[in-house]
């Protein structure tokens, strides 16, 4: 026995955590889930050895509240839904969302349109721009998707180039391929496993 006692329960019960987060390891690598009292506010791919953890926490602190603390319990629902999605038992997310990190206007409309693309289906950048109300703004739609603070849950991986190319992805193209394989859009013929 050594060191200070674990405060996670006491801090959870204090009601003073404004932004709770937890890191899950799965097929998409280490994924941070963060939640406010309103709902899931951030999903972030942390890369190898969770290198991006501190910058993401700093971003949450500066943009939402410095009361950022790890809490497994506060992320229970999101963690369960994500786990079910990865194991093929869930096709859509029900966890409430907090859009606080999304720029209002066109970006918000693009991401809300993206959230309505069903599991296993894809749309082109132009298609998403059209759903958001301006089919000529496909470049702006690409930028909006690139800024998605809620990847996987707001499924920007379902937006592809019209010609069949994968387009881009914040978590890297390998993660995008993994997600599309889970949904059966890409054939499940992986040479390596994670």
């Amino acid at each position: 026995m050594s060191g200070p006692p674990d405060l996670s329960k006491a801090l959870e019960q204090s009601g003073l955590i404004d932004v709770a987060y937890f890191v899950e390891d799965g097929p998409a690598g280490s994924v941070l889930l963060a939640s406010t009292s309103l709902g899931l506010v951030r999903v972030a791919f942390l890369g190898a050895e969770r290198a991006a953890l501190e910058p993401v926490l700093v971003e949450l602190s500066h943009r939402l509240s410095p009361r950022v603390l790890e809490s497994r319990q506060r992320l229970d629902t999101a963690r369960r839904e994500l786990d079910e999605f990865f194991s093929g038992r869930r096709r859509s997310f029900e966890v409430p969302l907090d859009w606080a990190l999304v720029k209002p206007g066109f970006t918000r409309r693009v991401l809300e349109s993206t959230a309505r693309i069903p599991f296993g289906q894809t749309l082109s950048y132009r298609g998403v721009a059209a759903l958001a109300g301006n089919d000529r703004a496909f470049r702006a739609a690409g930028t909006a998707l690139g800024s998605n603070p809620l990847p996987i849950v707001v499924p920007c991986h379902r937006v592809l180039h019209a010609g069949g190319g994968l387009g881009g992805y914040t978590g890297g193209l390998e993660v995008k391929r993994t997600l599309l394989r889970i949904e059966g859009v890409l054939p499940d013929t992986r040479a390596t496993s994670t």
């Binding site: 405060l7 926490l57 602190s61 500066h62 410095p66 950022v68």
Partner: peptide, 14 residues
């Protein structure tokens, strides 16, 4: 602009 509180806990709890 304050650092996230978790970092304080990680760094100074001991």
């Amino acid at each position: 602009e304050l650092p996230p509180f978790q970092l304080l806990l990680d760094r100074y709890s001991h």
